[in-house]
Nucleic acid binder design. Sequence first.
DNA 1: TTATAGGTTAAGCTTCAATTATGTTGCATA
DNA 2: TATGCAACATAATTGAAGCTTAACCTATAA
Lengths: 314, 314
Amino acid sequence: MLHNLDRLKTFYHIYSGKSIVAAAERLHVSQSAVSQSLQKLEEEIKTPLFIRLHKKIIPTAAGEKLFSIVESFMSDLDTCLNELEHSKEVPSGILRIGSPPEFGKTYLSLITAQFMSQYPEVTFSLELGHPGKLLPMLREGKIDFILLDEFLAKKPYSGNLDIFHFMPVAHEGIILTCSKEYYDKHIKDDLSFSSLSKQDYISYTADNLVVNSWFKHHFSKSAAKFHYVMTVNDHEAVVAAVLNHIGLGVVSSHLVRKELESGRMIKIAAPDTEIINTISLVQLLDKIPTIAEKLFAKFLIDKILSISDEYDQK
Amino acid sequence: MLHNLDRLKTFYHIYSGKSIVAAAERLHVSQSAVSQSLQKLEEEIKTPLFIRLHKKIIPTAAGEKLFSIVESFMSDLDTCLNELEHSKEVPSGILRIGSPPEFGKTYLSLITAQFMSQYPEVTFSLELGHPGKLLPMLREGKIDFILLDEFLAKKPYSGNLDIFHFMPVAHEGIILTCSKEYYDKHIKDDLSFSSLSKQDYISYTADNLVVNSWFKHHFSKSAAKFHYVMTVNDHEAVVAAVLNHIGLGVVSSHLVRKELESGRMIKIAAPDTEIINTISLVQLLDKIPTIAEKLFAKFLIDKILSISDEYDQK
DNA sequence: TTATAGGTTAAGCTTCAATTATGTTGCATA
DNA sequence: TATGCAACATAATTGAAGCTTAACCTATAA
């Protein structure tokens, strides 16, 4: 491999103008410097690149060959640098976003579509999954940013959270619910710890995390073991199971707003305030965001706020 | 355009190993040097190329894009340099040869064919023409070397001959001839200056050069004006015209050897020794010849010698 | 013959890249 | 919870490499 690539730039200009003087002017150095640089390049590759005639230099076959390579590289490099420059003003490229599945399915596809119509040079790559999967991907640069359910997160991530930047973008109530039928049959208004901890549960995650968290928040303690009648890796499936009277489930309140209003589902009244789950936009602290990333983050927050407003107006 | 191409080499190695330490080892410099070099590159293009994580660096989109360009260039450059290296041992490439038309038609195509069968990576580009055309082309690097009729040359070339290197490769007699019929009818053994200068002449070149030269060589003087009955830009056509009794012509003796032996053509006996025309291989003095050029020059001389020997044995 | 245009060569200087040494930080191990 | 370490960053120093100046060379034009 060549020892000094920089001399190729000099060579490029010499060839382009078929003159050392011309190259010196374009490079803003003395003609002597160009002459020396060319000599060193020729020494390095042990091949003459020009034949020296009086007041004229003529490329050799080797010179021609080398130039064809250097020229295409210089032009590629130039367009590449221009594109980089351009993408600082006009958002472009792929935005790789991680999101909880339920959020990705409902809101994100809508929001990205709106964003793309405004910034057509941006495309998206969505990665739906849970924090334990998404945070490491974010950390390894495979994703630009993620939307993260703080309530469900953090615990399963073993690393250092200081390298991330969390920006809350939405809040949702986390409630324990069951169907009206189940409530009347098994709970009968007994909302004590001992009553509730003996019920059947539907769990959203394979571990006890969600239900445990609900109990810890409201009773400052949790049962050693709950009776899980179903475990399913899908938020909507939990809602469906609850509606089928299988048991109790911890869900986002906005996902079951209609069911609660219609009375088909009952919210278990808790001893104190509702758990508020924060959905945050998480980015790598050390990563300088691109213009596309910045704009989309802003766009996302605006959209989520307007969606919340719509709900509130109903 | 980028200020310093050399840093791209460092970037290339950093990216390849996804590590600054690894790049430092491959480049035989300190880790610090690589780190600084990368920072300067990033400053220069005002774009981060890697995101720095603990014990890890991860290319950004810009880094990916830049690498794809640099990588293909590095590989192109590598194969180019290898080919240059290879072509120092194995002759290859195009040999651009200039030659007088008669020599090119008769010998050169034969010799090049033999050379190519021995060195299959060499190809040829022949330029047939006269010194006034070929010498400037040689001088401007459009031709690698030329074969040149010294007898016909030099005069029409206005430039400095010191930049060329002449190597004689063949000698031929230059004689004044006419047909037996013409001789008997018009010359009748009167070989005096006054007799000969009044004859009809066939000229090989548009100017008087050849016939003038013959007279100057043999009589130390030349006629003010010869009577040219035909001027033709082809040596063989001169021979044909002579055989058709049109007049006298100056030709190479070996081209009419058979005709002289058979008596169909007469060589005008000159007052002193025959003009010897030297065919030389001419190269640019300042041009370092490639291996292909060296070998072909040697090959050419050997072949011409062996062809001369064949004639001599007859 | 002189002038000049394009290139080369040589010597000194200046710059900038490499080194050394030290700092930082998250991870692994004890 | 320390402790070591692995990968990278930062700062100050040093020296090699490239630039400049100035003189030289030489073919062509004036």
